[in-house]
Design a protein around this nucleic acid. Structure first.
Length: 537
DNA sequence: GTGTGAGCA
DNA sequence: AAACTGCTCACAC
């Protein structure tokens, strides 16, 4: 896909150039099938407003790429040399921080939701099956994946790929229960393991390995064995010197497999030298396209072309690309996983998609969303001073409106009043959402200080003791919650966990403010004047 | 401060 | 007929 030539092809061949999230290579898919899948997904999509919007976005991405390409071409050799020199120093700096002293395992349950259902209904294992419904699928078993059925694929499209597909309604309580069983096993190997959603975890097994006199391969076998014996579920394990590499490795021999990357600089550099950039956590479809358009295909290319990257991308992107290319990421443990997700949060939001609503019905939908958000904020003890309303029109185009509020609040009425002012209820929408930001941050939880909140909770406990249990202590977030709100509160954690099923907690370039707390100063120095320099000359 | 959009899982 | 949700960052004005 080098040139933007074939365009006007609305006829029978349009599907050929149609690459979507659903048609990428995944474990267990033969190449022969890819064209068929592409074609079916394309046929089911091409006339929808959603598809039009996708095309619009693709064009914008292509434009961005060509701008970057021409920016790259216009760089004078001496400018590029300057960037290269700075990049070189950044590489030396990062290399000095390389830590090979620890072994991290990334545990990834195989088709977790689907596998949970198979436990109760073994016959489902032999037929193509997906968890979810007509609108959206959350997981598919491996039999269904052979047909191209993917998570995050609309059910109606999956049915076209696989007419005999069996749908199973999701059962969050079941997943949560099984996840607890899995965690009980994992905790024996690292009591401070980091949870990544319901079906993922990072374990620092360094200490266990020292005590047990096992090789890493043997330990991974043992953990997979334990998990299977005690939960009847299979998982895949990746082992490496840091979490980023471990996560990449856990995907390589999926399902029910393992891959250990030797903790040696040379082995790691070899590994990244034929690691497709798309495998790097944080690099998705679009970034892959951009990098490939700039001639970078494997992770180590990001180091080779570090000067160019420095010239073209932001400081943050530069550093994360460089880390990926060197196979370096944080290898230290993170504070308690549950608390960590709240610390450093910048905003909280809630949004709903519906068919098409306007007028008073739209208004009451907005109110519902505001109320949900308000109660989540109350639970999390968050008050925001800035509100944003997000609106998606029927043609899938997005619009946001935001306002600063007179004071910090998590009050539903105040939020609704502000939100309603930002919406034109006459216009039909397919989605509406509300985001609150600019929190008043009292004593924010720093990385690694997992119990900083506890004294507060403890104090509260003593103080409220006389009040006869109008409150309930949530172990999950170590906070006191109004007793009446308990069910809702638990649901909230469940929903959050569920959502995280599709996310990763690994060190990634963007996302949820999980930035390194330290070690940036030198890097800052290298790149701080990037823009100025780029502009001159 | 506000608005838009991209990107990711 | 039908394509989610929550979060972050970049950039323009």
């Amino acid at each position: 896909m080098g040139t933007a030539k074939e365009k006007e092809d609305s006829g029978g061949e349009g599907w050929r150039s149609y690459e979507s999230v659903f048609t990428n290579r995944k474990a267990g898919m033969a190449d022969v099938d890819r064209d068929r899948i592409k074609k079916i997904v394309f046929e089911a999509s091409k006339d929808s407003p959603h598809f039009k919007n996708e095309q619009r976005k693709e064009q914008a991405a292509a434009k961005r790429l060509s701008e970057l390409q021409s920016k790259a071409r216009s760089l004078l050799p001496r400018q590029l040399d300057g960037f290269k020199a700075k990049a070189k120093r950044a590489i030396v700096e990062l290399e000095a921080s390389r830590d090979l002293s620890r072994t991290w395992f990334h545990i990834d349950m195989d088709a977790f939701f689907a596998a949970c259902h198979v436990l109760d209904r073994p016959e489902l294992d032999r037929v193509p099956m997906a968890v979810g419904g007509n609108a959206m699928i959350s997981t598919a078993n491996y039999a269904a994946r052979k047909f191209g059925v993917r998570s995050a694929m609309p059910g109606f499209i999956a049915l076209k790929l696989c007419p005999q597909l069996t749908f199973v309604r999701s059962d969050f309580a079941k997943y949560k229960k099984k996840a607890e069983e899995v965690r009980a096993v994992l905790a024996r190997y690292d009591e401070n393991f980091i949870e990544g959603g319901l079906d993922e975890a990072y374990l620092d097994v360094t200490r266990y390995l020292e005590g047990a006199k096992l090789t890493e391969e043997e330990l991974a076998e043992k953990i997979r064995d334990d998990v299977f014996v005690e939960t009847s579920l299979t998982c895949s394990i990746g082992g490496a010197a840091n979490r980023m590499l471990a996560k990449i490795c856990s995907d390589l021999n999926k399902p029910n497999g393992q891959y250990i990357l030797e903790r040696k600089r040379k082995a790691i550099l070899e590994f990244v030298s034929d690691l497709p950039v798309r495998k790097i956590p944080g690099i998705g479809k679009v970034t892959e396209k951009v990098l490939k358009g700039l001639g970078m295909n494997v992770a180590s290319d990001l180091v080779k072309e570090a000067g160019l990257i420095l010239a073209l991308f932001s400081k943050i992107s530069f550093e994360s690309f460089l880390r990926a290319g060197l196979g370096i990421s944080s290898s230290e443990a993170v504070g308690a996983a549950q608390d960590d997700q709240d610390a450093g949060r910048k905003g909280i939001s809630c949004e709903r998609t519906f068919g098409s609503l306007r007028g008073s019905r739209l208004e009451s939908q907005l109110k519902e969303i505001v109320e949900t958000l308000s109660s989540q904020m109350t639970v999390k003890n968050l008050k925001g001073k800035h509100i944003t309303v997000k609106m998606k029109k029927v043609d899938f185009t997005l619009k946001t409106k935001s306002r600063a509020l007179p004071a910090h609040t998590c009050n539903a009425d105040e939020m609704m009043e502000a939100a309603a002012k930002l919406v034109d209820f006459k216009e039909p929408l397919r989605l509406i959402g509300v985001r609150m930001a600019e929190f008043e941050h009292e004593a924010h939880v720093e990385r690694g200080q997992k119990v900083i909140d506890l004294p507060k909770a403890e104090k509260r406990k003593e103080g409220e003791e006389g009040l006869q249990g109008g409150q309930w202590f949530c172990d999950k977030c170590s906070r006191w919650v109004e007793l009446e709100g308990r069910l809702e509160h638990e649901d909230f954690h469940l929903a959050q966990d569920l959502h995280r099923e599709q996310l990763t907690l690994s060190s990634k370039p963007k996302g949820r403010g999980r930035k390194p707390a330290t070690g940036m100063s030198t890097m800052d120095f290298f790149v701080q004047r990037k823009k100025k320099k780029a502009g001159e000359g």
